[in-house]
Amino acid sequence: MSRSASKVTIASTLYFCCFFLTGTLLADGIKLTELEYKVSNKVLMAAAKAELNFNSDMLAAVQSGIPLYFDLHIKVMQPRPYIWNKERHRVKYTFSFRKHALSNQFVITNLVTGQRGVYRTIELAIDNLGEVGYLAVLDVKELSNTSDLFMEMLFELDIESLPAPMIPMAYISRSWHISSKWLRRNLNL
């Protein structure tokens, strides 16, 4: 490959990287406000509250019957000096958010637990999506060392789960890059 061709390839790659990074950094549709945890029957459980702001594109999609999928990422981390933190455990819960046309209601389903909620208005459904009840994270017995641990949580819209025709536009449109920032909470187990 000639030198000029290599330059073109590097420039294209940088452009794509910058584009995706920009989309991620500008996402502000979800804000995690609270992160709680408890240990119940030796099981570490986490609950959270989030403020979700559906933009017009998302609202239009839901009203048109497009299901939206939200991922809740929970990580248990162990800090390490000088180098990056060690990930001790990671779990993901996926929530589907869709409209039931016949009943004209909105259904939120935790695809992991199967728990389901039915709401008459979309606003009510959005509010309840942000009320994440206690979810199991891991069995505390699995942790050999429970000191200096902390938990991180992130709530985001899964673009890959959108219908295929929407994916290209979702990738290049900021309105579909909906994600919270990582919210951290120290664990005292």
């Binding site: 239009a60 999609a61 048109s64 019957g65 497009i66 039931h100 046309a101 016949l102 219908p163 295929a164 025709p165 929407m166 290209p168 536009m169």
Partner: peptide, 28 residues
């Protein structure tokens, strides 16, 4: 019957919503 009506309507609405995006994807 309700499921049939529901799914048909939902599919149609979804396709209606995705009409332009489908065109764009096909065109792409």
């Amino acid at each position: 019957l309700a499921d049939s009506v529901e799914s048909s309507y939902e599919q149609y609405m979804e396709l209606s919503y995705l009409r332009e995006k489908l065109k764009l994807s096909f065109a792409m």
